[in-house]
């Protein structure tokens, strides 16, 4: 699995894990992220059950597992968090932060020890060590209970499925040519995102943030001006294509 350090600051760092070469072919490729401080860490959308071994093997290059004190699930999909039952065995003292809406659903994956911290619809803030991150509402983008994660110090937005693309396994970790990237993300957004209103609300929220890097759960990461380009592009397309069949 490829790992890339996205940010390194005084208090914490961001690491991306992606492009697992041993991933079963028909499973969609996913990006996992870890925010690591001196003593603690949070895994953002830790991934599906098939990815657990690779993820566990990757994170122990950076820290002992007991330092992972938090998990975050942007929504309930299996590629996001079907590994929960295994993390539950690995990190029995951790806390999972996830939309309140999905608690009863996510527990189906197995959550006997991990504490479920239900994020309210309006979002919330999480502080650990000297790090503070914000859970930003992204409801209906695409799931009905959905959050993005914003780190104001690193100026990174973990956007979940927003910005995601159906990329090839050997695609670059970062968007290199936005126009060439559009075909990889167009269908994904038009079909997976159901609501124009939700899209507009999310864009409005994100435009208020200072974002230098927009990190989706699939595909390539947007940096610098490509963040703005992506928001403009998203604003311009019509989503909910499944309703027009």
């Amino acid at each position: 699995m490829q790992t890339v350090k996205l940010f390194e600051g005084h208090s914490h760092e961001w690491i991306a894990f992606a492009r697992d070469p041993e991933k079963p072919e028909k499973i969609i490729d996913t990006n996992q992220y870890m925010i690591k401080s001196e003593r603690e860490a949070i895994l953002l959308d830790p991934g599906g059950i098939e990815l657990f071994a690779s993820m566990l093997a990757s994170v122990v290059h950076y820290l002992p597992v007991e330092q992972i004190t938090h998990l975050f699930a942007s929504h309930q999909d299996p590629d996001i968090i079907s590994s929960l039952g295994l993390w539950d065995k690995t990190l029995p003292n951790a806390t999972l932060h996830a939309p309140w809406l999905w608690e009863g659903f996510l527990r189906h994956y197995g959550c006997d020890h991990i504490i479920y911290d239900a994020i309210p619809d309006e979002g919330s803030t999480l502080k650990f060590d000297n790090v503070e991150i914000q859970f930003i509402p992204a409801h209906y983008m695409h799931a009905s209970g959905n959050f993005s994660v914003y780190d104001p110090v690193a100026k990174i937005l973990f956007s979940g499925d927003v910005g995601a693309g159906l990329n090839a396994p050997d695609d670059p970790m970062f968007v290199e040519d936005f126009n060439a990237h559009i075909p990889k993300i167009k269908k994904f957004h038009q079909r997976w995102m159901p609501s124009e209103r939700a899209k507009e609300m999310w864009i409005k929220r994100v435009r208020r943030l200072d974002v230098e890097m927009l990190c989706p759960q699939h595909g390539s990461i947007y940096r610098g001006d490509d963040v703005g380009r992506f928001l403009d592009w998203l604003e311009s397309i019509e989503v909910g294509s499944g309703l027009r069949l």
């Binding site: 290059h61 002992p64 597992v65």
Partner: peptide
Amino acid sequence: AKEKSKDALYRESY
């Protein structure tokens, strides 16, 4: 995971 993390610094932690 054990097979994949043979050279990882904190492999003993799990």
